[in-house]
Simulated assay, not measured.
Amino acid sequence: MSTTRLALRRAATVTALTATSVLVAAGVAAAHVTVHPESYAKGATDGVLTFRVPNEEDTASTTKVQVYLPTDHPVLGVLVSPRDGWTAKVTTSKLKTPVKTDDGTITDAVSEITWTGGKIGAGQFEDFDVAFGQLPEDTDELAFKTLQTYSDGKVVRWIEEAQSGDEEPENPAPTLKLTAAEDAAAASTAPAAKSSAKSAAASADSSDSTARGLGIAGLIVGAIGLAAAAFTFVRTRGARS
Rank of each mutant, 00 (worst) to 15 (best):
A7H: 11
L8V: 06
R9G: 11
R10W: 08
A11Y: 02
A12M: 12
A12P: 06
A12T: 10
V14R: 10
L17S: 13
T18C: 01
T18R: 01
T18Y: 00
T20P: 04
T20E: 12
T20K: 11
S21H: 09
V22K: 00
V22G: 02
V22T: 08
L23H: 11
A25P: 07
A25F: 04
G27F: 09
A29G: 09
A29H: 10
A30N: 10
A30F: 01
H32T: 10
V33I: 06
V33R: 01
V35R: 00
P37K: 00
P37D: 00
P37E: 01
P37C: 01
E38K: 02
E38C: 00
S39H: 01
Y40M: 13
A41K: 06
K42F: 06
G43C: 05
G43P: 00
G43L: 08
A44Y: 02
A44T: 05
A44V: 03
T45Q: 15
T45R: 15
T45L: 10
T45F: 05
D46F: 08
G47Y: 01
G47W: 01
V48I: 11
V48A: 11
L49R: 02
T50S: 15
V53L: 06
P54F: 00
N55C: 10
N55W: 03
N55A: 02
N55R: 01
D58K: 12
D58W: 12
D58V: 09
D58Q: 12
T59I: 07
A60T: 05
S61I: 03
T62H: 02
K64T: 14
V65C: 05
V67G: 04
V67Q: 05
Y68V: 12
L69K: 01
P70A: 00
T71Y: 04
H73A: 11
H73T: 07
H73L: 03
H73M: 04
H73W: 06
V75I: 13
V75C: 07
L76V: 08
V78L: 05
V78N: 03
L79A: 15
S81H: 14
S81P: 02
P82L: 03
P82E: 01
R83K: 13
W86R: 08
A88H: 06
A88D: 03
A88C: 09
K89G: 13
V90P: 14
V90A: 07
V90K: 11
S93N: 14
K94L: 13
K94C: 04
K94E: 15
K94Q: 14
T97A: 14
T97W: 06
K100P: 10
K100R: 14
D102L: 13
D103W: 09
G104V: 05
G104K: 08
G104N: 07
I106L: 08
I106F: 10
I106R: 12
T107P: 06
D108G: 03
D108M: 11
A109H: 07
V110N: 03
V110T: 15
V110G: 07
S111N: 10
E112C: 13
E112N: 12
I113F: 07
I113C: 06
I113G: 04
T114V: 11
T114E: 14
W115G: 01
W115R: 04
T116M: 05
T116Q: 09
T116C: 04
G117F: 03
G117L: 04
G118H: 02
I120N: 06
I120Y: 05
G121A: 13
G121D: 13
A122G: 06
D127S: 11
